[in-house]
């Protein structure tokens, strides 16, 4: 694509972005003139280059923590969502517990994570797990709870005898979009916990660890912001990948409803 065409198509999205970056550069360089308070955008970009050797290992560590937390969250939330969504009594029995635990900020679990698990990768994973678990659970059980009665009865009439078959062939496919939505939200919340999860010294690498324990203590704000940008961009990429690989491919049948 030619540059002019790119500008014409994405101008409305790109132009304000460029303006903000320019404003940042100018304000930092000529108004504030204090790199501790606000480093210049160009300095931040330069730091990303300077930090290139640290960046990849840190990124992999953070993705590892994220992977632990999210896998655990999904593996526990989905079965619980199935029984909560499908069996009314289970919902009534378990929901109060969920509703008491859910509003507790994931970061408040840090002391328990350290005491229970110790200062290791799994403790960080645990904090991310707490963040991701509830969104996945709640969207997913709604999916199972809201299966239209006529679809359940159709399944029964066509030979799905028993809960197992009905869940597998009717409820699960119906709930998949809700599960996907919950997972996406859970990924977002989980990622937000990464920095905090690495802050309390579970190891000596990771985006959050580096940002807080190293760069901040050295007052290298250009490095801090460089890592902030990486954290944001990585989440964006993860979200887009999820949408592309899961939602677009799996839910062609929803197109009439969604779009």
């Amino acid at each position: 694509m030619k540059l002019t065409a790119v500008i014409r198509e994405n101008g409305l999205a790109l132009l304000p972005l460029i303006l903000v970056l320019l404003l940042w550069e100018v304000t930092a360089g000529y108004v504030i003139k204090n790199s501790l308070f606000l480093p210049r955008f160009s300095a931040v970009i330069a730091s990303i280059y300077t930090l290139r050797n640290l960046l990849v290992p840190d990124l992999l560590t953070s993705l590892y923590h994220f992977g632990i937390g999210l896998t655990l969250a999904f593996a526990l939330a989905l079965p619980l969502a199935i029984v909560m969504g499908w069996f009314r009594p289970v919902f009534r029995a378990v929901d109060p517990i969920i509703e008491i635990l859910r509003p507790i900020p994931p970061l408040a679990w840090i002391p328990l994570a350290i005491v229970w698990i110790g200062l290791n990768d799994y403790a960080a994973g645990f904090i991310i797990f707490i963040g991701a678990f509830f969104p996945i659970l709640i969207d997913s059980y709604s999916g199972f709870r809201d299966v239209p009665r006529v679809l359940v009865e159709t399944g029964m009439v066509l030979g799905c005898i028993g809960h197992k078959k009905l869940i597998r062939h009717v409820a699960l496919p119906y709930a998949l979009p809700a599960i996907a939505t919950g997972t996406r939200v859970g990924m977002g919340v989980g990622w937000m916990c990464v920095v905090a999860a690495e802050m309390f010294g579970v190891g000596n690498s990771g985006l959050g660890y580096r940002l807080f324990q190293k760069f901040y203590f050295l007052h290298q704000m250009d490095y801090v912001i460089a890592y902030m940008l990486v954290l944001g961009l990585l989440a964006l990429v993860l979200d887009r990948m999820f949408r592309y690989f899961v939602e677009e491919r799996l839910f062609r049948w929803k197109r009439g409803i969604v779009k």
Binding site: P148, V150, L151, E153, T154, M156, V157, L158, G159, I161, V170, P173, Y174, L176, W253, K254, I257
Partner: peptide, 20 residues
């Protein structure tokens, strides 16, 4: 006693599985 495929049913509401 209970539903079975030897009695086919067509419902008033649209009952197709939308994902299929």
């Amino acid at each position: 006693e209970g539903p079975s495929p030897d009695r086919g049913m067509v419902f008033q509401e649209f009952s197709l599985f939308p994902w299929r």
